[in-house]
């Protein structure tokens, strides 16, 4: 791997100052995406700012209102095994469990995953379905935005130079959430998702008040469809709509046409599974 310098800030303020120092500077968290790009010669950073040594930057907490906050340096494995996430956002735990392999999950961070903007990823779709927000910090302060607005396209995010992701938060859920995540790979079990489908049914009392379908890994950004006061009969139509609205990126795993077809099939299945659990 080509040489670079590694700066090691202890605080976010310090980190942002270091990041604000020109083109060739980049943050590195788990390094599982970035180091590959450097090894392959696709990136030539002069300086990397190591966020792994930021103090207390990996906590996962839930506030009184019920919002779950995951600091950016939490590893995918921490998210997957966090009691808070398992109890309150099991679909996120399930999706994170399906990321890569155990060794990568111990290194990779949720912040790095979202900041990387790789569309062939599991967590973004689920988090978009959960209406998550990202918190961004820079030398000019801190701002928050919807993850759906943060993810602009393949390897494209709303991050400004000198800015970093410091946390992702999932707002409180009204009522009860029943959810299902389907990761579909076309080849080996170890592949990136060809499609990552999240289905959510929100219940107030016993009444389903909302259904959501998020499609990740198919298009440049996750697609989210919501339906209020859903009925079982309307679910296939939702999957149909997703398959019509999505703009798939064709690749070796399949043509755009095949991926559209997958979205229809898997969308229907995920919604049906969530519905069955929500309204047995």
């Amino acid at each position: 791997m080509r040489n670079f310098d590694l700066l090691e800030p202890k605080t976010v303020t310090e980190a942002c100052r270091m990041l604000d120092d020109g083109e060739d500077v980049r943050p590195v968290s788990g390094g599982t995406a970035l180091l590959i790009l450097v090894k392959q010669g696709l990136l030539r950073p002069r300086t990397l700012v190591n966020l792994k040594k930021l103090e207390g930057a990996n906590a996962i907490t839930r506030d009184e209102a019920g919002a779950v906050r995951i600091e950016a340096m939490a590893t995918i494995h921490q998210v997957e095994t966090s009691p808070v996430v398992r109890e309150h956002l099991p679909v996120l735990a399930a999706a994170c469990h399906q990321v890569a392999n155990i060794r990568i999950r111990h290194l990779a961070t949720i912040g790095g995953n979202l900041a990387h903007g790789d569309h062939q990823s599991d967590p973004p779709g689920v988090l978009v379905a959960l209406d998550a927000e990202v918190e961004l910090s820079g030398t000019r302060g801190t701002r928050a935005m919807k993850l759906a607005d943060f993810l602009l396209g393949t390897y494209e995010t709303a991050l400004e130079p000198g800015e970093m992701v410091t946390a992702v938060t999932v707002p409180p859920v009204r009522g009860r959430l029943v959810s299902d995540y389907l990761k579909f790979t076309t080849g080996s079990s170890e592949e990136r998702p060809c499609a990552g489908i999240t289905a959510l049914v929100r219940l107030e009392g016993d009444r389903p008040v909302e259904a959501r379908l998020a499609v990740g890994a198919v298009a440049a950004r996750p697609l989210l469809l919501c339906e209020t006061d859903p009925t079982e009969g309307a679910l296939p139509r939702m999957a149909e709509r997703a398959s019509e609205e999505i703009d798939p990126i064709p690749d070796l795993r399949g043509s755009a046409e095949y991926k559209r077809h997958l979205v229809r099939v898997l969308g229907r299945r995920a919604l049906a599974a969530a519905w069955k659990e929500a309204c047995p």
Binding site: G31, R103, H106
Partner: peptide, 11 residues
């Protein structure tokens, strides 16, 4: 915990 040492910065 198992990690891929090829992707972990030594620091």
């Amino acid at each position: 915990k198992p990690v891929s040492s090829c992707l972990m910065l030594a620091s």
